[in-house]
């Protein structure tokens, strides 16, 4: 059990470190922009927008909050991201980390 605990802490530290590097270098912004671009290109943005409109219509504009909308569309939004977009982003992050460690 201790091992798992230790591992979890290490993972968290690692994640924090990676994130720090990404922010520091501006790579995070570049990745964000790349992701945004890809999602627009593959129609994800339009699809999700359409879905949001439906949810708002269904619940009524007066009653809906952002929290409602977020919890409603998040699962769908995640599921709709194409695999190759995920792969490309992952690969970009790997490349970035490889460059950083050199």
């Amino acid at each position: 059990m201790a091992d798992i605990q230790e591992r979890k802490i290490k993972d968290a530290q690692m994640r924090a470190q990676i994130n720090q590097k990404l922010v520091e270098t501006g790579e995070r912004e570049r990745l964000k922009e790349l992701l945004r671009t890809r999602l627009v290109e593959c129609g994800w943005r339009d699809q999700l927008k359409q879905y949001c409109k439906e949810v708002v219509k269904q619940k009524g504009l007066e009653h809906i909050t952002v929290d409602d909308l977020v919890s409603e569309i998040t699962p769908k939004g995640r599921a709709l991201v194409p695999d190759n977009v995920k792969k490309e982003l992952l690969q970009r992050i790997r490349t970035f980390l490889a460059q950083q460690s050199n």
Binding site: A12, R15, A16, N19, Q20, K21, V23, E24, T25, G26
Partner: peptide, 17 residues
Amino acid sequence: ARRRKANQCICYVCRLY
């Protein structure tokens, strides 16, 4: 500014991004 953001921009409770 980015370095500052990288260091300070974390949840004060979780101590994480």
